[in-house]
Design a protein around this nucleic acid. Structure first.
Lengths: 221, 221, 221, 221
DNA sequence: GATGAATGAGCGTTCATTCAT
DNA sequence: TATGAATGAACGCTCATTCAT
């Protein structure tokens, strides 16, 4: 009974692996809220419920800590997308599922998303590289699906007017649009991830399909 | 005669308005290159060719200086878009022109673009607000054109399945896709701003038009 | 009259060169008293009567500051030695005068002496180099005089048993003995620098001369 | 059987005295390499092959550990000198033997030598005292021999111009010269300890003897 | 109008030392 | 006996900002 008095601050002695994960999670929150530069290691330590030296003992430096956050977030997000987009269905269906998962992930792990996409230019080279790697991981997934979608449609028709570079372009735009829509979702909490993904598909996929069918829009001369 | 000794560095006595613009332009370059936090006021003063107290005398504080940069960049960019998209043509044509102008602007004023879009989360509340305002300015333009495009198409058909919220959505996605494509452009320098805008139109506009025509994609039950 | 109230802490606004020298002098005292590692920049600033950032603005870093102290001390000491040892007299007389000046300098500038000779050898490469340079400056002077003394004596005798390497050896031992004797002087304040130098000359020079004369000591087989 | 799993790192349970010596030896190496302040207790523990708390359990604190190193080094060195200088021979022969032993010791136990002679003098009172004690131990041996050498020579001559204070002076200079010559030896590895000691004897002893004979050098009036 | 001189406040990092097991 | 986990207290350094001229 009396021991319960100390439950609130057990100053627990945790094994390294557990503490390490806790620190990274705390850092994720602080970095997302404040941004890399404005984030202060003291606060991360406080949020993690430990003293500052522990952060350095386990993670090395502020930069390495941030890199660990990026890896953490990137791994979680890529896994979510990949798992949802997996399977033997038609590419467009898989893309829709992947986008759904993506929007779902962002809604649930806002911090990870912020870490991954709103930090780029004012960070040391090492971190920038890490960020690029993380971004590419998702982009590659999308590009692959888009490319297969084009190939499928082409096969139906035997024309092949769209090539790999087009898939690149579409993927980039698609990812950018998706990025941006995460802001839109914040002001439309009633929209489910699936609905948002559906809307985006109708914006992009239908158009692409029709372009393959020859229905091209051109500005009047 | 003695004045010739100082000719190399005339330490010109400039009117306030000119000095102020020079400072903002110097700040734009430094902020874009280093990011808000890593940018150092000393360097801004040096790039502007004056002493640090002048920066404070004219712009008040680092934050205010950054806000001034945002306003500067935002005004230039919005003007470019608005001017290009102006006129009595069909909305889709105006959108294409606006997008073309946007991509052109970004290519020519990289610093302004970086200031506007790669800085968000790690800045004080005042600055974040300013950034949001700047973003909204462009978004509003796009939203208006999209909305009119929908209205036009609806008028032809009398159904009105798409509403203002849809315009919102499309605008957000469109802007996000455009944002993202600025990265794509860097690895495709041979693509003109117009071509990029055209590709984006074909991705989005054709699809939207067809959706209005009832050609909706839905995931299989 | 009232202004006298502020005289105690004039918070003087001094030109850079003056402040810089003051800082180095303060650093000399603190480094000598505490040693490089135990010395704290805050205390140096306090002793110099300014704030810490000034130290960094003017001297760059703790290491550079220490290097500046070394140069300062080394220049003063070498100058004292060289000036005293200058002239057209016989080498042994010049050596004696140089040694006298050396002992006098150490008595008067204890801090400089400590900086130059009582620091641990594990202080960053830059500092180690600077220290080596300083040590060599004195050693070179001594070596030169010893060498000429040997040459003179040899000339009298035409035998030349002692060469340049011997001059090296003698100079090294001589400087080491002088170093050590600065401690002895502290417990014998009644001995003037000249007397100490004289005693040292009699210990070393006489022996060297006699060795040249063939009076060599060897251990019994 | 299970114990075999730990065979690679037996984490031996050693008696206190053995562990203690191991720790001191590890500390000696680290302190010599890095200097007192730059040495880190973590590294000492690692080099000793144990955990940090053991160091504190056995040696108390960093300062006490360093003091233990000094005692260790001093004892070894004094023993080497004393043993070599022992016997019933003439003082000058014993001095030469002692110096030879000294140079040999330094060549073989560089770390102990560095600990004793290359540390800044500003290391806490306890340590300074311990260092002084160590220095005096050697100095006393030398002083004794010098004094007896003077006495012997005086006895031959019945003049006694040199007293105890002179022995002090000579010993101080001799030890300083020997200190300094350890540096010289590093650039002259071909010279044996005995040869170096011999050279030093010829520099100092011959001169001293001749001074006793009345052959004094004085600067010209 | 313009600047050289100066600083308060804070941040990333380290290290000797101890606690709980 | 032995250690992994944990921290209080500094220290080097930087930067936005202001004062005195």
């Amino acid at each position: 009974m009396l021991t319960r008095l100390t439950v609130e601050k057990p100053r627990r002695r945790l094994p390294r692996s557990v503490r390490e994960r806790e620190i990274v999670e705390a850092a994720l929150r602080v970095f997302a809220q404040r941004g890399y530069h404005a984030a202060v290691v003291d606060e991360i330590a406080e949020v993690a419920g430990i003293s500052k030296p522990m952060v350095y003992l386990y993670l090395g430096s502020k930069e390495e800590l941030f890199a660990a956050c990026i890896r953490h977030a990137s791994a979680a997000m890529t896994a979510a997308f990949r798992q949802a987009a997996d399977g033997g269905d038609a590419p467009e269906l898989r893309l829709w599922r992947g986008l759904s998962a993506f929007f779902g992930f962002v809604a649930e792990h806002r911090d990870s998303w912020v870490i991954l996409h709103r930090q780029a230019p004012q960070l040391g080279a090492a971190i920038t590289e890490e960020l690029a790697r993380a971004r590419d991981a998702v982009m590659d997934e999308v590009r692959g699906l888009v490319w297969r979608g084009i190939a499928d449609a082409d096969a139906d028709e035997g024309e092949g007017r769209l090539g790999q570079e087009d898939a690149d372009f579409v993927a980039q735009a698609l990812v950018g649009a998706a990025d941006s829509l995460t802001d839109w979702m914040e002001t439309h909490p009633e929209e489910s991830s699936e609905r948002v993904a559906l809307r985006l598909m109708n914006m992009v996929w239908v158009g692409m399909r029709d372009v393959l069918d020859g229905e091209v829009w051109t500005p009047p001369a």
